[in-house]
Design a binder for these strands. Sequence first.
DNA 1: TTAGGTGCAAAACCTTTGCCATCCC
DNA 2: GGGATGGCAAAGGTTTTGCACCTAA
Lengths: 126, 126
Amino acid sequence: MNRRETKQKEGILKVLSNTRAHPTADQIYDEVRKDIPRISKGTVYRNLQVLEEDGAITELRLDGTLSRYETKQENHYHFRCEKCGRVSDIDMPVDKKLDQRAEKRTGLKISSHQLEFRGLCKECQN
Amino acid sequence: MNRRETKQKEGILKVLSNTRAHPTADQIYDEVRKDIPRISKGTVYRNLQVLEEDGAITELRLDGTLSRYETKQENHYHFRCEKCGRVSDIDMPVDKKLDQRAEKRTGLKISSHQLEFRGLCKECQN
DNA sequence: TTAGGTGCAAAACCTTTGCCATCCC
DNA sequence: GGGATGGCAAAGGTTTTGCACCTAA
């Protein structure tokens, strides 16, 4: 199962590298299609899986129904606007002590945590 | 749009009141069907929406492709086993200072946060 | 009586998969 | 050449919806 470089895979990665919008698979598809009109959705989904397996991107499963994607980066927190649904990164250090604290209280083996803030983004505050 | 009490709605609420398992819509359907064999999935989904609108239950949208449900309670943290997928509540106070801290750093209007710990549950540690 | 709720089935979505053609190494 | 990848379309799985019938108030 040796991986190959293809223009489809590169196109998808390029879209994700050029945005901070945490797009859904469908949004990625629309964007890549501008460069590669005949690309199929199946290919987008397959490559998103492959890219995540290879550690190049992260699948965000914070919403429940739709997956969103971002290029791999240090674990960080997210913000979701309760009105418009947009997701953005929060520039705030990840508090690893939370894991230890929760581990002590529960006896579970905890390796990480995901945190999503909710509220109103700047545009939606008006 | 006055709400009515129906045995279907009561049955769904009863299932959620009697479990800590954060079941999916499908699991709720299976459980309710023991009491109300002719209930349909559409009715389950419709009632889950209604119950959430009325504040009786909460739809958990942290991680995963499937929505999970629980009866309404104080905001609290969750744990998801990375191996078996089970979700459980964490008995740990919600740190409201996190919201203030994030608000200061970002200028966003933050009203709450959702936190999900990940790791291995007791059963899966073996 | 009557507006809201139910059951059933079809539709709508999102994601995965099978198949064969195509491409990369 | 040969295995990995792509395009297309069909299949899968979850959730929503249209409609005729039912039922709580």
